[in-house]
């Protein structure tokens, strides 16, 4: 199985630890992971701002970097969804189509493709799971509260395999954190308020850590937590799943 690791630009620049954990975790599980070095960004920041027409360069670069792999795995639901929904190329649409089919967010890859049932991980903490919207409602990595359908959660299933970890119940299981890409600055007031309320829900329910399959949400909530001088920390789900007692 030839797997390419897709590290979103902001993870690369700001949260390399999450990408390292993703790589190590996949390797631990016996996966041969390749990291195409010329990767940059999926193009979502432009596209969500209404400039999808400017993403041709990003798209072609993405196709150059990620063609020919069995799977492409990414520690971000949002970037994965963007590729799945919007990666196109007039010159090499067949390659784009292949990539759209083969790109996976990390937790869905672990559950659906690797069929992970057991993990050597331990994280003895109370953890709040933030269901990032694009992973939840776009990729369906968990059941959303809106639908009348059986409950499931791929990230929660994996977190349940971690020794000592206790998931806290939230007041609102899947309300948005308010990051929203450029929304976070264009609609600063609402964005911050949404982030504050999300963070409060985790704190009120006793979380020591907030985790998610998406770092953009965590980055947002971390900004708020740190402004509040809170002891509560954010941590990407890969870092927990890769965590063992030293």
């Amino acid at each position: 199985m030839k797997v390419a690791l897709f590290v979103p630009c902001y993870v690369d620049q700001f949260y390399p630890k999450a990408a390292i954990a993703t790589l190590e975790l996949l390797e631990k599980l016996g996966v041969e992971v390749h990291y195409p070095k010329n990767q940059t960004c999926c193009g979502q920041p432009m596209a969500n701002s209404g400039y999808e027409h400017l993403t041709t360069g990003c798209n072609n670069l993405f196709i150059d970097n990620f063609s020919g792999y069995d799977y492409i795995v990414c520690p971000s639901g949002s970037c994965t969804l963007h590729i799945k929904e919007h990666l196109h190329s007039p010159q090499s649409e067949d390659k784009a189509t292949e990539i759209r089919k083969r790109v996976y967010e990390l937790t869905e890859f672990l559950v659906d493709i690797l069929h992970v049932e057991h993990l050597e991980a331990s994280f003895p903490h109370k953890v709040g799971l933030h269901q990032s919207c694009h992973g939840l409602r776009g990729l369906h990595i968990a059941q959303m509260s809106e639908l009348v359908a059986p409950a499931f959660s791929k990230p929660a299933k994996l977190l349940d395999m971690v020794q000592g970890l206790q998931l806290v119940q939230l007041g609102r299981q899947d309300d948005c954190c308010g990051f929203g890409g450029t929304f976070c600055v264009a609609e600063e007031a609402v964005s911050s308020k949404m982030g504050k309320d999300r963070v409060d829900d985790h704190i009120e329910h006793g979380a020591e850590y907030i985790t998610s399959a998406d770092l953009s949400c965590l980055m947002h909530m971390e900004g708020i937590l740190r402004r509040q001088n809170s002891n509560v920390k954010v941590i990407h789900v890969a870092e927990i799943l890769n965590h063992s007692i030293q």
Binding site: G50, C133, R137, D174, C176, G178, F179, G180, F183
Partner: peptide, 9 residues
């Protein structure tokens, strides 16, 4: 259309 995080709810 920009007054949204595209959360999909």
């Amino acid at each position: 259309p920009f007054a949204s995080t595209l959360c999909g709810s």
